[in-house]
Design a protein around this nucleic acid. Structure first.
Lengths: 136, 136
DNA sequence: CGTTGCCTTGACGCCGGGGGCAAGGATTAC
DNA sequence: GTAATCCTTGCCCCCGGCGTCAAGGCAACG
């Protein structure tokens, strides 16, 4: 199949495929007229790349998976290098989630504090203090 | 004070201050010779910006806080627009943390599955099956 | 034979938040 | 006087992952 069809079948664009080829990730054979040509196995590789990309993997991080498939293994993650990428990614995700969670807590506290301050400033009109105190 | 001193006192660079000015976020007065000049209140604005940036706020998101301070309020988050930014940020963070957590789970499962598969493939050398079975 | 519609390469654009450098003016220190 | 610091503007660079032309080939249909 040619580049347009492969792109369509993988739900991506020809531009993306040429980009992957320029990165050496998904090289293509050529027909006599210079057109790129692909087969079903390329579609598998491409789907592997796309799946990982959707999970937030960098292009470079997908390379071991692609090479693993190309080496004839049943799955992209059948090779130690792919597992290593998984583990690094897990660590990255844990670190990132941890940071974001800390920031989230901080922002939530700031918001609560600022809302309270605003409340105190304008509680329903200025000065609502001790409505029931004073002289009955 | 001039730009270099302000940058040093805020732990940032002159390049950054000029960038903020170019974005209209932190305009500077000028002395006769064209030098930018700042005062203590600018330092407060700048610190507000930096704090929010450190939390992952975009520059544009810091603008309400800066304007709030510049309007004379005691804190950058004393204004409704700032609170709105806080709330949007919380929502964004929740969404992002949720997505990342989902991805994390998925990757963890994939890793576990792939490790099991590898184990089954090479359990201690090929074919360790039924070491104790067969003919005793 | 012309018109679509696919394909090719090449090159620039974008996004955010600045980094880095060049050429030149101002001020200060010695 | 002059060297060392500061300051000014302006412009290109970076990152990743493509988008978006532009100019030109090749094929198939009518």
């Amino acid at each position: 199949m040619r580049i347009g069809e492969l792109a369509a079948r993988a739900g991506t664009t020809t531009r993306t495929l040429r980009y992957y080829e320029s990165r050496g990730l998904l090289p293509a054979r050529r027909t006599g007229n210079g057109y790129r040509t692909y087969d079903e196995s390329d579609l598998r590789l491409l789907r592997q790349i796309r799946t990982l990309q959707d999970f937030g993997f960098d292009l470079e991080e997908t390379r071991p998976f692609v090479e693993c498939l190309r080496a004839g293994h049943p799955a992209g993650d059948s090779c130690p290098a792919s597992l290593a990428v998984y583990r690094r990614k897990l660590d990255e995700l844990d670190a990132l989630i941890g940071q974001l969670t800390t920031v989230r807590e901080t922002v939530a506290r700031q918001l609560a504090r600022a809302e309270l301050a605003a409340e105190a400033e304008v509680p329903g009109g200025p000065e609502p203090v001790c409505e029931l105190g004073g002289d009955p």
